[in-house]
């Protein structure tokens, strides 16, 4: 998932280090603080790990993203293909496609957005609770695609803020999976301001 092992302080302590508990390169001084490595090992063996609250919240958020079903046109078919058996989107946590925007946190705009659909798109986005993200899937959602005419909104970022754009017409299901992974990295890197969020 791209997270380096030292960001999480869960470590499996090798047996060889068991003998080194309390030992360090420094001479033993009563009251001295032991080296971080050994403390971590000792804690890990007890099943205690330490991290920041922000990282755990981010991990929870990106590991179980619930997309809202917003398939509009052709890209929706590839989105359905991405959630099916061959290209399994459920491996990355995004299994449950919720019909109601009130219960989802990711809106995958899959397909071309016509002028009549624009206000509906905005309304569905507004109905989603925070934190929410938007993936603009395909060329039509990103920039109007091959339809540069009166009927199609030239890019959904004119209506909603977009986090990840996927090119393609339609993008392969692996492209959607790549976008979800990229979004997961973005969520992991997003600082969480306060615990109360």
């Amino acid at each position: 998932m791209g997270l380096k092992s030292d960001e999480f302080l869960i470590r499996r302590a090798p047996l060889a280090m068991a003998a080194r508990v309390g030992a360090s390169d420094l001479p033993a001084i009563p009251g001295a603080i032991p080296a971080e490595q050994d403390l971590a090992d000792a804690a890990a063996r007890e099943g205690i790990f330490s991290t920041t609250v922000g990282k755990v919240i981010a991990w929870g958020r990106y590991s179980s993203i619930w997309p809202a079903t917003f398939g509009l046109a052709c890209c929706a078919i590839e989105m359905m293909g991405a959630s099916n058996a061959r290209f399994d989107l459920a491996r990355f946590g995004a299994e449950v496609f919720r019909a109601s925007p009130r219960q989802s946190d990711l809106m995958i705009v899959a397909g071309r957005v016509s002028q009549k659909m624009g206000p509906v798109l905005r309304q569905i986005y507004d109905q989603m609770p925070d934190p929410k993200w938007v993936i603009s899937m395909g060329a039509c959602a990103s920039c109007g695609g091959i339809f540069n005419n009166y009927a199609i909104i030239q890019g959904v970022d004119k209506v909603v803020p977009v986090d990840v754009y996927i090119p393609g017409c339609p993008p392969r299901p692996e492209g959607l999976i790549e976008a979800v992974i990229m979004l997961q990295k973005k969520i992991a890197a997003t600082p969480v301001a306060s615990i109360r969020e």
Binding site: L72, G111, R112, S114, K116, F147, N149, I152
Partner: peptide, 11 residues
């Protein structure tokens, strides 16, 4: 209907 009107015939 009309939520997916793309203007194909004009295009």
């Amino acid at each position: 209907i009309g939520y997916l009107h793309t203007g194909f015939e004009k295009s």
